[in-house]
Design a protein around this nucleic acid. Structure first.
Lengths: 191, 191
DNA sequence: GTCTATATACGGATAGAC
DNA sequence: GTCTATCCGTATATAGAC
């Protein structure tokens, strides 16, 4: 459990993270979160006094950290940064299209839904993107990229993953993601 | 007016297109569409018997065509395909960050919201993406790219635009989009 | 900490008059 | 083609007992 002061709180938060990431902010109801989590029905506003906004804000951080952990795990296995990034893309694609069809390795939906509606949530999503970029940046630097090149590349890598994932998921075809993995290899090595 | 058999119908549809594109499917209510459009209040289900789904499906097509028209307009001015693509990105960035802050040149939000919820809407978004790719594909071919290269590049260009736009909008900084325009130039010329 | 009941609003959708 | 009234479900949120 991540970020759980109590068992119940953590249960609700983790359930919320799954639902928000898969269905988005507006399509996920508080009732649904309580029902799915199996948590006591009366305790949501006790643990999250500011209601849905607070729950979403914390859940976005959880989603961000989950995906970041997955990325770091892959990065530890592959020393070469380019290979590591390619492998992360391929493994994410595999997860999406086989293990759990409706899961996304992305916070694009939450970001796009909330950016013009709630400044706190927008800011939280923005920080998640920046954190991911930092992980890629460090990996590129440790692999010999100049800090300037690594900075520019890391933002492009995250942007492209989000975009290619959106296209692949919409078309229900892994091609966009897989062909991006190939592209990323060529592009980064040419820097 | 696009696709309007009658004045009122077109009015509703165009208003719906603006709201859906900016706020997404779930955050946009039918009441809101009627109110904003100024259309007669009782006539929504007369013009759109299948309700919100039908309205959204047609609106997604409208949004897709609007963005496609914008792209084609820029492509007509610049003969070189790489230059044309770069210019489209720069002009879109300008539009987003100056003329109308909450406007997006994207259907990512609608695609991500509906893909696991409604097969019709998912399919419609998928077709919009494919149509955009086709425009880029034709431009690249006419500029001397091989059909194979053009096919792969066109999908990457659309994916990258969607991803970079998501990041730029979330961070409220044009950098991701503008730096992608530079990248796109280098990448495509190296093919 | 947890529960029930409820307030209040808004969502999409329908029926039937005009 | 348009309007009004309304049904019904669900949403977030709160009050107060236990």
């Amino acid at each position: 459990m991540i970020n759980s002061k109590t068992e119940t709180r953590g249960l609700i938060l983790n359930t919320a993270a799954v639902l928000f990431r898969n269905k988005g902010y507006h399509a996920t109801g508080l009732n649904e979160i309580i029902r799915e989590s199996g948590a006591p029905k009366g305790c949501l506003y006790y643990h999250f006094p500011q209601g849905k906004e607070q729950l979403a804000q914390e859940a976005i951080k959880v989603v961000g950290l989950e995906i970041q952990a997955k990325m770091e795990k892959v990065f530890q296995v592959y020393e070469d940064p380019v290979e590591a990034i390619q492998e992360f893309i391929r493994q994410s694609t595999e997860s999406i299209f086989t293990r759990a069809e409706d899961r996304r390795f992305s916070v694009s939906l939450l970001a796009l839904e909330t950016m013009n509606m709630n400044e706190n949530l927008r800011q939280t999503c923005s920080e998640v993107f920046s954190d991911w970029e930092e992980v890629v940046y460090n990996k590129l630097c440790s692999g010999g990229f100049s800090t300037e090149t690594a900075r520019s590349c890391s933002e492009m890598v995250i942007a492209m993953i989000e975009g290619a994932m959106t296209l692949s998921l919409t078309k229900r075809q892994p091609e966009a993601l897989l062909s991006f993995a190939d592209w990323a290899g060529r592009l980064l090595r040419q820097q």
